Simulated assay, not measured.
Amino acid sequence: MEKEFSNSKKGILLVNLGSPKSTDVKDVKEYLDEFLMDEKVIDYRWIFRALLVQGIILKTRPPKSAEAYKTVWTDEGSPLIVITEKIRKKLQKQVDVPVEIGMRYAEPSIETGIRALAEKGVTEIVLFPLYPQYAMSTTETVIEKAEEVRKQKFPGIKINYIQPFYNREMYINCLAESIREKLPKNFDALQFSYHGVPERHIFKTDPTKTCNLNDCCTRENNPSHQFCYRHQCFKTTETVIEKLNLPKEKVIVSFQSRLGKDKWIEPYTDETFETIPKKGIKNLAVVCPAFVSDCLETLEEISVEGKHQFTEAGGENFHYIPCLNDEDRWIEVVKTLCEEKLNEFYLV
C-alpha cells in the first residue's frame, strides 16, 4: 500500500534513460527516433542528424534492436524500467515525501513524473539523474529536458538537481562492496566497461578548452573534471580498486556501445574482449559502473555478446557482475543523496 502525500510540498523524481514500451519493431523504432534525434546524443546539425537517424539508422536498425531487446525482456517488461520502479518502491518506504520515476526517452517521461508529483501537491522536486558520471548525453540532456518541461508546463515548481556522484565515498563503498561479493575467486583481470561517448563530446563539455584526452584527466584541481566523463570514469575505477585492494595490473578500463564511424573514447570494450585472451587473460570478470541498473547494454551487449567475443578469441571463463540494481546498500546511497538535496530547500 503506497503512502498518501496529499499535503507534501517536496518530492523526489528518479530519472533514468528509458526503454521502448515493447519489443515490437514499431515501438523500438519510435524509441530510437526520440533517443538518437536528441542533439545531446548525436550532436550534428538537425538536418544532418535527421539524414543519419531517419534516413539511414531507422531504416535498418530497429529489427535488430528489437531482437536484442527480446533476449532481455522480462514478464514485467523492460529490465531498466522494472529495476528503476523497484528502486522507487524501496526508497518510498524510507522517505516521507512522494517518489516517482521518469525516463529521458519514452514513458514514463520526465513530464509524466513531474505531473504525478504535482498532483500530490509537490512544488519542490529533487530530481536524481541516475548516472554516476557526468556526460552531455546523460546528465546534461536530463537537466535540459526537465527545465524545458518545468518552464513550459510547471512554472511554479522548483527543481533541485543531484550532481554526479562518481567520487562520493558512500557510492564508492557501495560499488566496491557489491563487486567484492560477486567477484569470482579466480580471475586474471577485472574489466571496468563504461558506456562510450564520441571524443568531441569531451571537448564540448570542457569549460577550459584545454582537454587533450591524455594527462589532463589526472591533473590535480583541473576545473574540467566536473564536466569530463572520461576523467570521472577513470576516477571511479581508481577509487574502487583502492577499496578492493586490487593491483593495477589486474584492472582494465574500456568503453562500449559506440555508434557510427566517429572517433569515440578508447580503448573499445569489444576490441579488448578480442585481444586480451592472446595476452594470457583467460578468466575475466566485467563490471559496468556507468549504469546503476541492468539494461540492454549490460545484459545483452556485455553478458551475452561480450562473453561470445571473449570466448571466441580464446578466453575460458567470463563473469559479468550485475549493476547495483535495487540492492539495499544502493537504496541507502540514493536516500542519502536525495535527503541532502531535500534539506537544501530549507536553506533557501
Score class of each variant (00 low, 15 high):
F310P: 00
P247L: 08
P322L: 12
S257V: 12
F273E: 01
D270F: 09
V304C: 09
F318D: 00
T311I: 14
E242V: 11
T298A: 12
T237W: 00
E266M: 13
C233N: 07
T272H: 01
C295G: 02
C233D: 04
R258E: 09
I321M: 07
F291S: 02
K282Q: 15
F273S: 02
G280I: 09
F255N: 00
V304L: 15
D262H: 09
R230L: 12
T237S: 07
L259K: 12
Y229A: 01
S224I: 11
Y229R: 02
P267C: 13
D262V: 14
G260D: 07
G280A: 10
V253I: 14
R258H: 13
S303L: 10
V253Q: 08
E271W: 13
F291N: 00
L244T: 08
L246K: 05
H319V: 05
E238W: 03
S224P: 04
G260P: 04
D270Y: 10
E266I: 04
F291E: 02
C288G: 06
E300F: 10
E301A: 10
H308C: 08
E301G: 04
H225A: 06
F255P: 00
E305I: 12
E305N: 15
A285I: 04
L244C: 08
V251A: 07
K235A: 13
L259S: 09
E238Y: 05
V240S: 02
E238M: 05
H319P: 00
V292R: 01
K261G: 09
I281Y: 01
F255I: 08
G314N: 09
S293C: 14
K235G: 01
A313G: 12
V304G: 02
K263V: 15
N317F: 08
F234L: 14
G314T: 08
V251Y: 02
E300K: 10
E305P: 01
S303P: 01
S257C: 12
I265K: 04
T311P: 00
K250V: 06
D262G: 09
H231D: 10
F273N: 02
K243W: 07
D262R: 13
K307F: 06
E297Y: 11
L259I: 15
K282Y: 11
V304S: 07
S257R: 06
D294I: 03
Y320H: 11
G260W: 05
D294V: 03
P289A: 14
A313R: 13
Y229C: 01
V304Y: 08
S257Q: 08
E301L: 04
H225P: 00
K243D: 07
E238T: 11
R230F: 10
C295P: 00
W264T: 02
K278C: 11
L246C: 06
C233T: 12
N245E: 15
Q256E: 11
E242L: 09
T311Y: 03
H231E: 12
E238Q: 14
H231F: 15
V287H: 04
L296Y: 04
E305H: 13
T269K: 04
I302H: 07
K279C: 05
T239I: 13
G280R: 12
Y320N: 03
S257D: 10
I265A: 05
S303M: 10
I265T: 03
L284K: 04
E301T: 07
